[in-house]
Design a protein around this nucleic acid. Sequence first.
DNA 1: ATCACAAACGCAATATACTTGCAATTGAAC
DNA 2: GTTCAATTGCAAGTATATTGCGTTTGTGAT
Lengths: 139, 139
Amino acid sequence: MKSNNPDFAELLREYGSKATPGRVTLLKVLWQEDKPISVAGLKKKLDPSFDEVTLYRALESLTASGLIREVDFRHGHAHYEMNALREHHHHIICTSCGRVEDTECRVQEAKLTKASAFRIITDHTAEFFGLCNSCIKTA
Amino acid sequence: MKSNNPDFAELLREYGSKATPGRVTLLKVLWQEDKPISVAGLKKKLDPSFDEVTLYRALESLTASGLIREVDFRHGHAHYEMNALREHHHHIICTSCGRVEDTECRVQEAKLTKASAFRIITDHTAEFFGLCNSCIKTA
DNA sequence: ATCACAAACGCAATATACTTGCAATTGAAC
DNA sequence: GTTCAATTGCAAGTATATTGCGTTTGTGAT
Ligand SMILES: [Mn+2]
Ligand SMILES: [Mn+2]
Ligand SMILES: [Zn+2]
Ligand SMILES: [Zn+2]
């Protein structure tokens, strides 16, 4: 739970989307989550009448606009988190208990454009996998 | 195509796998590839009698042992590349033409264990997406 | 060389994650 | 309030990967 909720309808419009009731609710759920959430997780938090296909299409659309972001935790399905109004970052995931921690981005894309045949790098992934301290103890 | 082929059967045994004819062939194909290849790509290069389920199980097993590595190009399916006998690295992928280039790893996992509640980091992903120089020109 | 057995295989069935087609609805711009 | 592209809802479909299970095989031990 967070305070100072942004105006989700306005935010959606700023990113070129229509501010439908479903998308406003979806965005609110993503805002309240403190870590990337799966489609299954979203369905549980949303009204059962929220159509699954509509959900997939909203996620695709909002990801394309950059309002939200898709993250790969190697669970065989996508996770999503708020991208706007947040600082760019990555994650450390415990492969034993699933615990997730944000971690600051230390990647410098600019250096890569000098070392490669790519002049434009738009985006990158960087997730870390390991064991959190409580899982180390019980191991 | 590369010269100085390693002994694939011996390599498989070193990584705790049985050196079956199928796995030896699979490993050879992965060795000859210069970039991560999909399951569909592998099937094309392998004998049609190579069972698909056997292929999936071999990939899972060899990935678990660290002999090969799974890479996510955001194509909706996995890609695999040789991991043993190679230096750890990452990739830059052109989102327009699919061109792939290796890039050296600049990530320092050790620094992360100090900044987080994780003492053990075993693994990380880091792939870069952008436009290669020939796709920039034609854009 | 033979044996024992876990690992790997082959085939059919199944599961999960996600996509497509299309008619109906609706938010936003004018 | 009219217009229209964006979005929705439902049904059907696709792609990717997994599971179950009986059979085969590579490997280490004798
Ligand atoms: Mn998950
Ligand atoms: Mn591919
Ligand atoms: Zn980053
Ligand atoms: Zn690395």
